[in-house]
């Protein structure tokens, strides 16, 4: 069973274990080109193992992880290009914004004569054009994360992984960046896989939410968000969907101890 041509990422029967300790027991999902998918899981659901596998850092213990119909891990020269926005910015502090971006461009397929234009265009989209020659230490947390997003978009990736990229920012900054993120996604047509703990964030951003069970994880449910875009973060419908998801996952994720004793 091969994915259709618009399948970017295919995960099939994925199992990850460390020695005899399973982190992911059996995971299946697909991401289609241009989708904005959120992955939602309780803490301890093997999230970082999953991220390491679908970013090609770690080989799957068992199962298939394919990007554009080719195995991801150890793909050598034909390795697909990925973008990754980490929780921390992970920019090289001794390189200016521009130098940081050129570093990843040098390892991409983007021809050199387009670098300058692409950098300028993306920095403009992210409203950080004036920081092109600044050092990361001179920027705020939100600005650094914008650079990090620009970096991910620049390499023209098959898809972009985002690992709770807004979780270290203050809520006001996170809000504006969240809003822009949907705009950027709409403008660039990028495929985004967004991992988060925040149900509301997932509902606001994604077309589809892959809900995981508590570790060792499997897919609990593929949830399609029934709200048209553009969305507003304070839209009551988002709160309704959030409440709906909470109702569904309460059992799968386990109740807190006091409630459990009440049930017993």
């Amino acid at each position: 069973m091969t994915g259709t041509s618009d399948t970017v990422l295919k995960v099939e029967g994925l199992q990850v274990s460390y020695g005899s300790i399973p982190a992911i027991s059996s995971l299946d999902f697909e991401i289609k080109r241009g989708e904005f998918v959120a992955i939602l899981g309780p803490s301890g659901c093997g999230k970082s193992s999953m991220l390491n596998v679908i970013s090609g850092l770690l080989p799957p213990t068992r199962g298939v992880v394919e990007v554009d119909s080719r195995p991801l891990y150890d793909a050598g020269r034909h390795a697909p290009k990925l973008g990754y926005v980490f929780q921390a910015h992970r920019l090289l502090p001794w390189r200016t914004v521009k130098q940081n971006l050129e570093l990843v461009l040098a390892a991409s397929d983007v021809p050199r004569d387009q670098w300058e234009d692409n950098i300028d265009r993306l920095l403009d989209i992210l409203h950080i054009g004036q920081f092109k020659n600044s050092w990361p230490m001179q920027l705020s947390g939100g600005q650094r994360q914008r650079v990090s997003i620009a970096r991910a978009l620049l390499v023209e990736p098959s898809y972009i992984l985002m690992d709770e990229p807004l979780s270290t920012l203050d809520e006001v900054t996170a809000r504006s960046l969240r809003q822009e993120l949907s705009g950027i996604w709409a403008r660039t047509g990028a495929t985004i896989v967004f991992v988060t703990h925040s149900i509301r964030e997932a509902v606001y951003l994604a077309d589809r939410i892959i809900i995981l069970t508590r570790g060792p994880s499997t897919v609990f449910e593929n949830y399609h968000v029934p709200i048209a875009r553009p969305r507003a973060y304070d839209d009551p419908r988002i709160a309704e969907v959030e409440a709906d998801i909470i109702r569904r996952v309460e059992h799968a994720w386990g109740l807190d101890p006091i409630k459990q004793s009440e049930v017993a």
């Binding site: 850092l57 390795a79 290009k81 990754y84 980490f86 990843v104 390892a107 991409s108």
Partner: peptide
């Protein structure tokens, strides 16, 4: 991890 993901030699 960053340099590996962005395929920097």
């Amino acid at each position: 991890e960053m340099t590996r993901i962005y395929r920097i030699p």
